[in-house]
């Protein structure tokens, strides 16, 4: 029985398997194209192309990588159709340098916090407030472009760390530094713009 089921595990592409990947592909397209309609078109073209060339597909382990490869072409096609100026592909970034030096303001020379995280009052409540999401978006957009791409591929698209490295061409070590840095920045931005200032607002309301 066991042997048989293992042998049966040959990769088959069916609609359900493809549909499973749709949300991830859509998110990927969305952060690249920044337009929901275009993203949706690109994903549909991708799934159609995948379906038509299913025999070219080599195995389930690499399904997402394979689909993202097709999607990248569809996104490039889109830009070509739009006759945009040369849009540099921020995802083909090589190593992200400039990080090591930049890190210094968050920590002192001995590795202790320089300032550092205060306690946030009721963060869960923030998730229900429209204004919070505007701040969140601002903070995310304030990340340097390449850092933002790495962060979004991981946290918004939902790729695994190794997939992000493969997509962006950065090394493991560079990935850890970049994500650490992105989280430090986002955290600080949210604290300054939302958590500290909303406490301030509360106090001023009482006054």
């Amino acid at each position: 029985m066991l042997l048989k089921s293992a042998a049966d595990r040959t990769p088959t592409l069916n609609e359900a398997v493809l549909a499973e990947q749709r949300p991830v592909l859509f998110r990927y397209a969305l952060i690249k194209l920044r337009n929901a309609e275009w993203a949706d078109d690109a994903v549909q073209e991708t799934l159609l192309a995948a379906w038509q060339s299913a025999t070219a597909f080599q195995g389930k382990a690499g399904l997402r990588t394979w689909l993202i490869g097709i999607l990248k072409h569809k996104i490039a096609d889109h830009w070509r159709r739009m006759e945009r100026e040369v849009v540099t592909d921020v995802l083909d970034m090589g190593e992200i340098d400039m990080l090591e030096n930049e890190d210094d303001d968050f920590f002192l020379g001995n590795g202790h916090w320089n300032g550092g995280p205060n306690t946030w009052q009721d963060p869960e409540a923030a998730l229900k407030q429209q204004e919070f999401w505007a701040i969140y978006e601002t903070c995310q957009n304030n990340l340097p472009a390449k850092m933002a791409q790495v962060f979004m591929l991981r946290e918004l698209v939902g790729l695994e760390a190794e997939e992000v490295c493969r997509e962006t061409g950065i090394s493991d070590a560079n990935y850890w530094v970049t994500m650490h840095r992105a989280r430090l920045r986002l955290r600080e931005c949210l604290e300054i713009r939302w958590f500290n200032s909303s406490q301030f607002n509360k106090e001023s309301h009482h006054a």
């Binding site: 969305l30 929901a36 993203a39 995280p117 946030w120 998730l127 995310q140 962060f151 939902g158 955290r187």
Partner: peptide, 26 residues
């Protein structure tokens, strides 16, 4: 560091919710 730990978990949650909102709006 205790705050950092809980806040980065919160940021993850917020990021996913943000992505879900984008997805839903479409």
């Amino acid at each position: 560091c205790r705050n950092f730990l809980s806040q980065t978990q919160f940021i993850r949650k917020a990021a996913r919710q943000y992505a879900d909102q984008m997805f839903d709006s479409v």
